[in-house]
Design a protein around this nucleic acid. Sequence first.
DNA 1: CGGGACAACGTTTTT
DNA 2: CGTTGTCCCG
Length: 664
Amino acid sequence: MKKYTIKRQAIEIDISSMSIDYASKLNPAQLSAVTFGKGASLIIAGAGSGKTRTLVYRVAYLVERGIPPTSILLLTFTRKAAQEMLKRAAALTSSRIDSQSGGVEGGTFHSFASRVLREFAQEIGFSPTFTILDRSDSEDVINLIRGRMGLNVRGRRFPKKKTISDIFSKSVSKSTLMSTIVETEFPHFSKEIEPLYELFSEYTQYKQKHMLMDYDDLLVYLVRLLKESEHVAAKLRSRYAYVLVDEYQDTNSLQADIVKNLVGDNGNVMVVGDDSQSIYSFRGADFRNIMDFPELFPQTKIIKLEENYRSTQSILGLANTIIDRARDKYTKVLYTKRKEGHTPALIPLPDESVQSVFVAQKILELREEGVALDDIAVLFRAGFHSFDLEVELKKRNIPYIKHGGFKFMETAHVKDIMAHLKIIVNPSDVVGLERMLLLVDGVGPAAARTIAEQVIVEGVTSKGLLNYTNDKRYGEGITKLAKAISTLENNQMSPADAVTLLTDYYTPLLKKKFDDYPKRLQDLEHLAIITGKYRDFDSFITDMALDPPTDSISDIQREDPDPERLILSTIHSAKGLEWHSVFVIWAAEGYFPTTYAAESVEDIEEELRLMYVAMTRAEENLFITYPVKIITHRGPAYGKASRFVQNIKEEILETWVVEEEWDL
DNA sequence: CGGGACAACGTTTTT
DNA sequence: CGTTGTCCCG
């Protein structure tokens, strides 16, 4: 075989002759990022500095210069973010360039990995029809293996499945020895390192055997593919001539490795991020990644975006004060040309219910002043912090939408239905099969395991099940299951029809298993609606694992959602967004920062950055509240303001005194 | 071995 | 508070 290379060149045009007037839409720093030429660049983009805008214009600029959209790869933190940016870039260039129309490829590292691996997995000895395990799926597998290895005997203090999964994931995503992770973060289990290694090895083999990949595997195998298969790496390098990565401060070492190997030494790569907004270390992310980027690509050009367009001077002043207290010093200082504005407020309230009343009342006031409901957000550290407020909002008929927190896809009944669907796509998915069988009357863990193993050998699930239809112990149970599965196997059904069919089969089992089945049945109807958007099983199942619906159930169920709804969100889910007025509730010691984080300086620093992210979401108004009396399951306790907002001058953070008045 | 009944536990953020 | 583990009976 003879190799021959042709050189393709983008058209060189003076930007003034291009149809978009870049210079008038961007500040000098943004402009230099947008029009950056070849090679590597690192954009340090402070909160509200027009980061998204810069990326959008960058994509449009590349397209206008004649770079084929298909050779641009945009990696973002969520798939929604990618779609949003591409939509905006498309509007600028007045052409269809989004990935659906075969244009720019955009998505998360995980979804990108899944697509590449479905194309090339065979190269590294993995089947391309693998199923993706979400966190709880992978915990189930770990639990199963732990049981088989006899590690769950009574009286032995061996980590629980969730902890094991944590240890595995941290070790993999930080590229750190498991023994180090255990010794530093779980020293009480250091005696169990040996069996943990054994368990890890069994777990890895099990996944390979049954064509399963967990979240970390997607990244691990992509790195391996890029490193071990030179021709695939070369193919991908020429396919993606321009790689853009958003939120780089939240990448882990595997993702850095992917970028490095995907781009190669001479490629074109632009990463964008803000070291002071790194909030995903629990997932293995390390903000030092962004600092170390120039070491990956020695010729890196660094551009800093420091002008904030979002917040008033007062809000920015507070945010800067907060981040100044960090031990690690950051790369930039934000400034704004915007006016002073209202002083941010710190508001202690007697208890949680008064906090809810205050927030609700203040929101209605803002609404009166003409602030749209969807321009107001209530942010909190953890999903359950908003429960009481949600009750108050419902009482007052304030429509809201909640992001983050509770996961629809993780409820037992939805997982049950999904297990059945997954079997159709990947008949060797034993975990799903066992879950499915356990639902049948008369089948317990032992029988589920034996039957599942036999069924796998058979190859076709419904056929394998037929061997058990005459077993009296299981009555009609297995027969009904086999019937449902064979209908799915033999008919080309849409995912939505499949969900409906499975729900019919599952309803009697559901009623037996849960007392609150009416609510859960509604969820399943809702699942059928979501499924309606998909044509094939593969993409539906992959999407549900990589990009599951995040809105709260109560919200999705509404037929005609109000167009204008208040936003409730965890701070993690509020990343990259902005609102006219922002409430940060539960800013109390023990809640924010959580007691959980109190162990190390690093953890506290991350909580601090989280507070910084929360504050910098606000444009005009920022209200920080906390309850003084807190009812815990151990009894009442006195709440202190979060250490992050203590001892700040009144000019920067004004304390309010709220009085109650009864309307009799 | 299956399954119901009961006890104990620990509690975040998400691809 | 709801899940996860344990015990014991049929």
